[in-house]
Design a protein around this nucleic acid. Structure first.
Lengths: 196, 196
DNA sequence: GTCTATACTGTGATAGAC
DNA sequence: GTCTATCACAGTATAGAC
């Protein structure tokens, strides 16, 4: 006999379908915008009728919630992996963290809006979906505190980076203007807070 | 006989009604969010039936466009008035400009979203409505150039300020966390660019 | 210029057959 | 679990009486 827990093929299949739906939702969001995405569009993309989605998600907001959780979960995963071996030079380490966030944010407008802006009116992420986001900010705060950065200055760094991302999307999406400005921005901040 | 052009009472009345509608639209936007505002809600607020709005605006986007123009027009008016007598000390002058923008932005989320973020999917401001926005940025660039600030550093300042506003709305709307951080943020930037 | 009436489309969501 | 059929409602927009 085989050891270990018995695989639950039904649950696995269900989870796979949920993932398919979320992937389709991201595709649609990229095409028509996060706010104008409709259940019918998602269903069409995944080869279902719209009502069938309700076998997998109890509402449209539940889909948004899963998208939110997945987006922050993905970022957390990639971030924690990188942050485990940052440069020993604090300034360089910060630049690495910032660059990673910038690249991740800029890669997908809809995802960035869902993760970091309040553009969906009726939607509030559940506590469960919000958890990865909290962990990432917390971990970033710890790293900066260890480097001697005050919590206020940490907030300013986050504001600066989010601002550069915003300006990128607003004024030069697809261009490199703000990507080119990123390192200088961080240097300014690092100089001011006295980071080696 | 009286001199001067004859008043056009009809046109005046029309313009007044348009203004009433835009004011009502801002009220509704503040209540339900910029994107979920409906013509029926605006009409109800102004004491009309929804179709009657089409006597004054040719579409919903035309209403958004007028809101956009009015918002930037208002900011331009108040900004140019202040910028005419800025402090002679460059750093203080920048702080005054930034503080004014921050206060204006933070006073109204819906207005800020319309002015500075792309949250409405089908909407693009017309060239006419976009003009005040361009003039403001242009004037700001001139002032900073006169103070010896490079155009790159000017862009970084704009990013920084927009980032602080964003973090305010995202993390502490109604609070003073980011308002309190604003001066220190600008000082960091001013130190880095060597502003007196 | 404003009204009533209405057209038409699209939305999220539900019921029940299979 | 997916389907068809349908609901109730809101969306923008137009026609025509007054």
């Amino acid at each position: 006999m085989l050891d270990g827990p018995i695989r639950d093929r039904v649950a696995e299949r269900r989870e796979l379908t949920r993932r398919e739906i979320i992937d389709a939702a991201w595709e649609v969001a990229g095409e028509v915008g996060l706010a104008s995405l409709t259940l019918r569009q998602i269903a069409a993309k995944v080869g279902m009728q719209a009502p069938s989605l309700y076998s997998h998600f109890e509402s449209k907001n539940a889909i948004y919630d899963e998208m939110f959780a997945r987006a922050w979960g993905d970022f957390e995963e990639s971030a924690l992996a990188r942050w485990a071996n940052l440069s020993g030079q604090p300034r360089l380490a910060v630049k690495q963290m910032v660059r990673h966030f910038f690249d991740f944010a800029v890669a997908d407008l809809a995802r960035y809006q869902l993760m970091n802006q309040r553009i969906l009116v009726g939607f509030e992420p559940t506590a469960r979906s919000f958890a990865p986001s909290l962990r990432v900010v917390e971990r970033s705060a710890e790293i900066h505190q260890a480097a001697g950065v005050s919590s206020e200055d940490h907030l300013i760094l986050l504001a600066l980076v989010s601002g550069v991302v915003n300006q990128h999307f607003a004024n030069d999406p697809g261009g490199t203007t703000y990507s080119d400005l990123l390192d200088r921005s961080v240097d300014m901040w690092a100089d001011a807070v006295g980071l080696r």
